[in-house]
Amino acid sequence: MDTEALVQLARCPLDNPNVHVIGVTGPPGGGKSTLCGQLVQNLAREHKVAALLVDPSSPYSGGAILGDRIRMSALSANPNVYIRSLSNRGNTGGVNSTVVSIIRAVMNCGFEYIIVETVGAGQSEVKIASIADTTLVVAVPNLGDDIQAFKSGIMEIADIFVINKADLPGADVLFAALRESAVRHKDGWLTPVCQTVAVEGRGIDSLLDYIRAHGDWLRRQGRLTEKRKQAAKFEILELSSYYLQSHLDQVPADVLAANLANKDFNMLQRLLDAYREIVNSLSEVN
């Protein structure tokens, strides 16, 4: 990535309270893409909407096939819609290291809703909660052991649960189970459980009502600013670890091994010192 561009982007404000960043995550097979497509389509009737769709990169080649766009091909002619496919570029956790930079960019291009769809590879994709104002966790009835799939920490990050394919048998059981375990956030947001059939567009209106309600609640509570600060923190954490890794990747392993904590060139010590120095100088600036 062009580092200069990243620095430029980092100067773009992230605190616009009139923009709503919505994260969509959940185990594979839940119809997340179809659901996102419906959300975009509905919102784009009156608003400018950006969809950032993350797909996994190949661990072998680093390349990726970014296929989510196909599911939104009907929207690709809509002037209110911007679609950007992203590779996670090896990042585990469902997103990629530059996603906040991209959110800054689209936020400052007049988009009012920004939807981020995570990889959906089934692993614990909790990073989205650090980025989005509102996090949707999508589940479907009878997809293996559904509740089990949720236990990997993904329950806690939901601001809204969505049971998609709610016309399938087993939806009632899942609904009851999620209601039971619905999380009450501090300051009193009770995580609602929404039922949708995204392929038919059913339940989308009421889901949007909940999304808006959550946005209003965040603003009322003054928590939106808090969220955006979290996102900026996430940005610096992810970018620095990504860049460290990509620089180290360019050095042959034997060179790294030889200089890890060498007398003449103590790389580890130097790295740690550099970090400490940067963090220390922060307190001087402030």
Binding site: I65, G67, I70, R71, S73, A74
Partner: peptide, 9 residues
């Protein structure tokens, strides 16, 4: 309605 392709690569 129209069919939306499901074929991902």
């Amino acid at each position: 309605g129209e069919y939306q392709a499901k074929d991902l690569i």
